[in-house]
Design a protein around this nucleic acid. Structure first.
Lengths: 199, 199
DNA sequence: CAGATTATAGGATGATCGCCCTACAATCTC
DNA sequence: GAGATTGTAGGGCGATCATCCTATAATCTG
């Protein structure tokens, strides 16, 4: 069966995923990926017809990864507020990578927008997955008005922190902003969804 | 003297500035710039020894442009709060460009970080110019504590708005966030009058 | 085992890139 | 106006890139 081929395909996607994050999409060549996986360039075209096809597979894999992570968080934390803290703390857990490579989603979207790449509309779905999950948590906390706007605002706040952290390679800024973002979340929940919760 | 040569040099910088913003640095070739300016590729190396040298000149030009703009704002508005509103409204004035190309500073820093380019440390000075100006305005408004942190937070908020606007090509999100950012500024200034609080 | 399918390797191709080099035109200096 | 300096043009070089093509090796099927 195509078991061996499928396994290699997954290895290629994983390697491309990491390289696209660290070096950017355009700046990563077939040779770069082939070197990491340990195969020849030519073999590539047996698994992917074009570079765009790899990008598409990477985006799909990332979306699947995000969904799996959010499912895990849902299981791990019964309290939606703890889930949202977990989302914010993601910045701390990944601070070393963020410092040097930014956000895998944000930086990819920024690059695709610059190159007028048609796949921007697929890449930004990674944001949408987070947004929809955020909306669910906010609603569970009793937030009823402007839920979508608050979720989008949440994402933008995170993106701003990451962009500046990356530009200055400054982890302390990130840590400071994480504390502030948690306070904002507390006040947002306290203001909008006061009824059903206690501190 | 070298008046003619200097004029062409400035035209090259201006063209490179715009192309770097619209297409990104790595994605812009010498031919692209030469075509816009209307000169031959070879002529380039009379004015700039390397592509990095053009990038350096563009960054210097942008910093000078930002400083000139801020001086203009200082003259135009006597009230520091009006100046800060003017800063926020920059998002509205440039919303069409932001939608498709993001922030000239943020997207350049993001790209340079991806390619591990040494000039990231020069590019992020563009942020610093804004930050220092923001600090001056905040102090004039009576903010005494955490002025630097508030200024950096301000910049991060703007960057987040731009990144998400660009990723979704959504101007309405930008407009919504501008209103919210002004409210945040109002509250931040109002709170600072008496005793200070942690940002 | 024979033949078909799947998987891998790596050279060839054409395009593009940053950059170098030389020839030539324009301008300035004395 | 002769010579020096400054500015411009464009061909060429070596490297890299995405992609194509063909030759095999590995594996499966009957």
């Amino acid at each position: 069966m195509g078991n061996k081929g499928e396994a290699l395909r997954q290895k290629i996607i994983a390697a491309a995923d990491e390289l696209f994050y660290q070096q950017g999409y355009e700046n990563t060549s077939f040779s770069d990926i082939a070197d990491v996986v340990g195969i020849s360039r030519g073999n590539f075209y047996y698994h992917f017809k074009s570079k765009d096809e790899i990008l598409n597979a990477v985006i799909d894999a990332r979306i699947a990864g995000i969904e799996a992570m959010l499912d895990e968080w849902d299981e791990k934390f019964a309290d939606p507020l703890q889930r949202l803290y977990c989302y914010i703390d993601m910045l701390l857990r990944a601070q070393e990578e963020i410092r040097f490579h930014g956000c895998p989603i944000g930086s990819l979207c920024t690059e695709l927008a610059k190159t007028s790449h048609a796949m921007l509309n697929d890449a930004n779905k990674m944001f949408t997955v987070f947004r929809d999950w955020l909306m669910v948590q906010l609603k569970l906390l009793g937030v009823e008005k402007n839920v979508k706007k608050i979720a989008m605002h949440f994402i933008a706040r995170v993106q701003g922190i990451v962009t500046v952290t990356n530009a200055f390679e400054d982890k302390e800024f990130l840590q400071q902003e994480v504390r502030q973002l948690k306070k904002w979340l507390d006040s947002e929940v306290a203001l909008s969804g006061s009824s059903s919760r206690q501190p």
